[in-house]
Design a protein around this nucleic acid. Sequence first.
DNA 1: TTAATCATGTAACACGTTACATGATTGC
DNA 2: GCAATCATGTAACGTGTTACATGATTAA
Lengths: 180, 180
Amino acid sequence: MSLKHGLLGLLTLRKSSGYDLSKLFQESLSYFWVANQSQIYRELDKMEEQGWVVSSKVEQDARPNKRVYAITKEGNAELLRYLKDDSAAELGVVRNPLLMKLFFSSMVDREYSIRLLENYREVCVKAMQEVKEQVAEIGEIEETAAKPAYWLYSTNYSVAYYEFQIKWIDETVARIRSLK
Amino acid sequence: MSLKHGLLGLLTLRKSSGYDLSKLFQESLSYFWVANQSQIYRELDKMEEQGWVVSSKVEQDARPNKRVYAITKEGNAELLRYLKDDSAAELGVVRNPLLMKLFFSSMVDREYSIRLLENYREVCVKAMQEVKEQVAEIGEIEETAAKPAYWLYSTNYSVAYYEFQIKWIDETVARIRSLK
DNA sequence: TTAATCATGTAACACGTTACATGATTGC
DNA sequence: GCAATCATGTAACGTGTTACATGATTAA
């Protein structure tokens, strides 16, 4: 249920349309939670049914009309309930396409695996770069959903996660190279 | 599409029913790819339509009848194509419920966050333990989908991943404790 | 002035999860 | 001898992804 709660969290900042939320989400939460627009619209619908948010139609001339959402008292209560619940510390679901491929790679020449890993390494390096840039950028922006400290923990996580992966790739490539 | 390819990989080992595959999957690939039974049945259906596998009904008396799947020539070709494709080195999708919660945790007392992290730490320690035990176990079993080396890379990954998370938790808890 | 992008959103489909069904067999 | 688990699978529903729609504005 984290998507709903992420949206609630963002709505504590300010009222927003689905489109706004989608952008905001992209800039903040997407580093540890992927979600796309349609999904967000659907969740907002349901959240309104549940009474966590209310929406009102806003007519616009130059732009398409929009529906603006605001968090309700019930929504706020739900958000706090969620945040205080420390039991929900479950492992995130894991689906790692790289490991899947590598697992069966004894069936093909090791050059394929080495290239696979090296390509992935580049992806990691770039992604890490991006997170670091984003940290620098947001350092300057005033309005953050989280207080800076909490926000930093998640970016630290991301950076460290890429570092860990790069290290593992380097070790693994070395091992593959020295096979037989 | 990794699930289909995982199943193809397992089917190179031996013919299996959906039920068998589900068990096999659990013991081998589930460490880096979650999938449940129903999903596997559905994928097998589609894979048969695509001609990657063929199935035959097997009547049984003491047990429910079953449908046994075997990989075809086309399935094998597809598996090799997949394994040789080193461009598909995309970052796995990430949805991290822990980071989502932590991100907004400035809204609640820091004791909640500390407990959250410590609970999660325990989960990691246990999960890491399990992987290590599984490594020890499988060390003895003869039939592995991957050659031992390749299989080990993925378990190394898992262990290192838990270690990384535990380290990050410890640092983060320390930082939260020293806030303000 | 044409192509791209913005600002909004809907619709269709694919994938993932939970619950159920059923007759043996095994464990206590 | 009753409850749990095994060995098989189906059905229903919920979540995630991709594609499309549309009129305004900006970039080249």
